[in-house]
Nucleic acid binder design. Structure first.
Lengths: 207, 207
DNA sequence: GTCTATAGACGGATAGAC
DNA sequence: GTCTATCCGTCTATAGAC
């Protein structure tokens, strides 16, 4: 994760308080939901008070932004990279592979975004919302299919992204409190999962 | 959009406050999120007061249950039906087709469930089962793949369900306020969408 | 950097009149 | 069936001491 070294020296020596806040907040936001998790709850779990939180973050939403901006930065970089390449099966395959890597690496952040879509979409703050997945999805599809693709091809590309995202999240070994046993008696390793998911996404994109 | 205000002449405009509450609540819950939508907001949009809502529903959660129980009933029926059939490609295909139909028919409800996962998961009522998507997913996968399938086959079946669900929701013509134009310049009809999605799901399941 | 204390707002829910 | 009025809890955020 990003260690948030955006602060002056005096504030973050070895300062893991900020990082611990992020960690606990992300965990609770993803598990119980953004609105159902109060700052009091986060503070209590860390053994500090609410006011301490406000020393490190200017608001509740600011905590969210602190761990989502890194994720969105990666996606944007992926899109930019894709635009520089010539469309084709090889490019699409590489894009998908990189996308899978991003999703798997930022597992908890992705889980948070997935499970709090309505909340995130609802933040109409105007200023800076920690924001939208929608325009990025459009760009990803365009970059995978190339311009002027048919509805069928576009939908399949979208489905590939959806399938990849949700599968990586759901079948991940380090999913917290998953009733995974019921659906997958034997868990695949991270590499096995990556391979299976990439194969399935490729099937969707290449036809 | 504002279907609660102006309805077609043959629709039962008068005397069905309960249905109008459901409709408006579902719309707002799906769009802005369950917690970010207050009963006051729902009441205001209907031109009534909060207290009136409590005549028709015993709590906020009760409104949710009123429009989710039908959806889950259908899924459960689908699972039960699947269990009675012998596993095989034909069965899987039929199951997928029926699942797609369910998702497409209950579009707004599904959107609500999708976009409020964290909230829904957070309500540990225990007594009300509308919380659990997880065990149903496990059952669906089992019924599609048959018993004792490999991790790869199970993950592909899961991915098929994920892809179908999200695609039907996202690429649906009557998606409210979707920036769909950006990703799909020409929109498929409901039948075309169904066909495309079924084909893609089949590709995932049969290999 | 962390604390205590509190402001200020808004939420869900209920009582009882009509 | 719908209203007015209100209770009580919780929340985010801030002020200011140490």
């Amino acid at each position: 994760m990003d260690a948030a070294q955006e602060q002056p020296e005096h504030a973050t020596r070895r300062g893991d308080t900020r990082a611990r806040i992020q960690q606990v907040a992300l965990e609770l936001f993803a598990e119980h939901g953004y609105e159902r998790t109060s700052l009091r709850e986060i503070a209590e779990r860390l053994g500090v008070t609410k006011a301490a939180l406000y020393y490190h973050f200017k608001s509740k939403e600011d905590i969210v932004r602190s761990f989502t901006e890194d994720y969105f930065g990666r996606i944007d970089a992926l899109i930019a990279r894709g635009k520089e390449q010539s469309p084709g099966t090889a490019t699409a395959q590489e894009l998908l592979a990189r996308y899978i890597a991003i999703v798997m690496e930022s597992g908890e952040v992705f889980r948070f975004l997935e499970r709090n879509q309505a909340t995130i979409h609802g933040t109409e703050d105007g200023k800076h919302r920690f924001t939208q997945f929608r325009p990025r999805l459009a760009a990803l599809i365009e970059v995978i299919t190339g311009p002027g693709a048919s509805p069928r091809v576009r939908i399949r590309a979208g489905a590939a992204i959806f399938a990849v995202s949700t599968s990586c999240m759901f079948f991940s070994k380090d999913a917290p409190e998953a009733d995974l046993d019921a659906v997958l008696p034997v868990l695949p390793s991270k590499d096995e999962l990556r391979e299976i998911v990439l194969e399935l996404a490729t099937d969707l994109v290449k036809n």
